[in-house]
């Protein structure tokens, strides 16, 4: 099966091809003498009913298994997009976080019905109100309307909670949350994975271990 069909030249397979190969492999595997039994003897499969629950979601074609109303307003999404691009801007290697929809992921996140996400909703919404107030106080304009230098001036003050001034600590907690969510949004996409050099999730005939180059760099081999 896998060993016969895959060779090292396949290791650069795109995911779609890999899935196709996998499907082929699964179908070609003989399941002698048991398929019929399995169908006959189980009391109930969920197949026909398609009743998915949050504890038993459709993992192959995922949809959000809870009833979700996206919470954030367009104005909030616009502000989050600005912030996401300040946190992960485009460069020669990869696009920006907002161009990959980080603000929409944050909306999905804070709209989920679980305690962590509900707390994050308060933190993010409150933080955005505060951020615009802070921008107006310092520069007389909403955050999105500020120059890059002005935006950075505020971000520099709230980018690290241990060093933030006492009256800005809550702003720093908000910024840290948005940075974490933006990083999740960005690095779970293909461009984000490529940016850091994740090259797995591909079927391979063998696991070869680290290269000689890596072993030398780690002083594990002369």
């Amino acid at each position: 099966m896998a060993d016969d069909n895959y060779n090292s030249s396949n290791t650069n397979l795109k995911r779609r091809d890999a899935l196709k190969l996998l499907a082929t492999a699964a179908v070609s595997i003989p399941v002698l003498g048991m398929a019929g039994h399995a169908a006959a003897v189980t009391a109930k499969t969920k197949g026909a009913e398609l009743i998915y629950r949050p504890t038993d979601p459709d993992m192959l074609k995922p949809v959000v298994p809870w009833s979700m109303t996206l919470t954030l307003t367009q104005a909030e999404l616009d502000d989050l997009a600005v912030l996401a691009d300040i946190i992960i801007p485009a460069d020669a290697q990869s696009p920006s976080a907002a161009s990959l929809g980080a603000q929409h992921f944050i909306n999905e996140w804070v709209s989920a019905p679980y305690p962590q996400q509900k707390a994050d909703l308060v933190l993010v919404r409150g933080g955005l109100v505060w951020l615009n107030g802070e921008a107006k106080k310092r520069f007389g304009k909403a955050f999105a309307k500020l120059s890059t230098a002005e935006q950075r001036q505020i971000c520099d003050d709230i980018c690290y909670e241990p060093k933030a001034a006492a009256n800005l600590k809550h702003g720093a907690r908000f910024f840290a949350k948005v940075r974490d969510l933006t990083a999740t949004a960005f690095y779970t996409t293909e461009p984000g994975m490529a940016d850091i050099g994740y090259i797995g999730n591909k079927p391979m005939a063998n696991f070869d271990g680290p290269s000689d180059e890596v072993l030398r760099k780690l002083k594990l081999k002369s």
């Binding site: 720093a172 940075r179 974490d180 990083a183």
Partner: peptide
């Protein structure tokens, strides 16, 4: 070097003193 998932790079701020922007990337 596992596949990045939810929470990827969440703990990085203590290593970078809160880097963002090009520094964070």
């Amino acid at each position: 070097r596992g596949m990045p998932g939810a929470g990827a790079f969440g703990g990085l701020q203590s290593f970078t003193e809160g880097a963002y922007g090009a520094d964070f990337k």
